[in-house]
């Protein structure tokens, strides 16, 4: 009996995730034709990368061979995942509750809400992947980003990417949980949080630039280790430009990333359960706030 219940529960979770992923993709992409959607998906990260390229070019007189440049460029490119995945998961609450006003129906349907929300983040992951790919290609083709596909550590890349995306999804779930309770500012939450994490994760500058008392924040968040691993997997040794984590080996970084991701995952589950219960008790599931 227990085995059967567990199988039903697993199938429900998988179904919730898959259906939400498909739904999320439709909502994200079907407002226009595929060409315009592709432009829409890549123009924001490309422009952000271009801002950094111009800033870098102005100060260094166009010296793109400095090892600092690929570190800044790749850190910025991969950071696209942070906002997009977290926002994909948490925005689903706002969109379904306020815009489509369907969240209450989702809650009474035979689905698992956390898996449904995580599934809604898949569209964000796909669009982010497209923009990261194009940003890196542009860097390699036009800006001398020193990336050799034959020398890249692809195993480390995909393992890090996999753990990182799960970690970001769980952080998105925490934001989704808060979105269930917050009245007005939920729509800014992912942007605000990813903006703050951007400052402390060493995405576009080494943590050494920050005042010494702020650096521990960077060491406490898994995104810092994830970005370092993504850089190392593609361009090898980055210690000369970004010395912050030079004393750690790849395996140590991977261990830190996995450990912190697991910790954030556990926190996310408990936070979501708590906020979900509060939202049900207070009757907030079908609330509209004119966001």
């Amino acid at each position: 009996m227990d085995v059967s219940r567990s199988a039903v529960s697993r199938s429900e979770a998988i179904r919730s995730f898959k259906t939400a992923a498909w739904l999320g993709w439709q909502i994200t992409s079907n407002w226009t034709d595929p060409f315009l959607f592709a432009i829409y998906s890549i123009i924001r990260p490309i422009s952000r990368a271009a801002i950094l390229v111009v800033m870098y070019g102005v100060i260094t007189q166009g010296n793109f061979t400095n090892p600092l440049f690929p570190c800044i460029y790749l850190g910025n490119a991969f950071y696209t995942y942070v906002f997009t995945v977290m926002n994909g998961v948490s925005w689903a609450v706002i969109e379904d509750r306020e815009h489509y006003q369907t969240l209450k129906y989702m809650y009474i349907a035979p689905i698992r809400i956390p898996f449904y929300l995580l599934g809604r983040g898949v569209a964000g992951f796909l669009t982010a992947s497209l923009s990261v790919l194009i940003t890196i290609l542009a860097g390699v083709l036009f800006l001398q980003v020193s990336f050799d596909p034959l020398r890249a550590n692809w195993l480390l890349f995909f393992v890090s990417l996999f753990i990182g995306v799960i970690m970001l999804s769980m952080m998105g779930l925490v934001l989704a949980a808060f979105s269930l309770l917050v009245v007005r500012h939920a729509s800014f939450m992912a942007e605000g949080v990813s903006g703050v994490l951007f400052l402390f994760s060493g995405a576009i500058y080494p943590l050494e630039v920050l005042p010494i008392w702020l650096r521990p924040i960077g060491f406490a968040i898994p995104i810092t280790y994830w970005l370092e691993l993504m850089r190392r997997s593609l361009i090898g040794n980055v210690a000369q430009a970004f010395p912050t984590l030079a004393r750690f080996s790849n395996m140590q970084l991977l261990g830190l990333l996995a450990g912190l991701s697991f910790l954030f995952g556990v926190i996310a589950v408990f936070v979501f359960r708590y906020c979900d219960r509060l939202a049900r008790e207070r009757g907030l599931i079908d609330r509209t706030t004119n966001y």
């Binding site: 800033m55 870098y56 100060i59 600092l68 500012h185 903006g195 500058y205 080494p206 630039v209």
Partner: peptide, 29 residues
């Protein structure tokens, strides 16, 4: 009446400002 908007309206642009200032600092501009 709702001053909490200020938090987001000030903090978010200020976050970008700090990030870009730090980039210039890293580049010794």
């Amino acid at each position: 009446r709702d001053t909490s908007w200020m938090l987001f309206d000030v903090i978010m642009p200020l976050g970008s400002v700090i990030a870009y200032v730090m980039v210039y600092r890293a580049l010794k501009a």
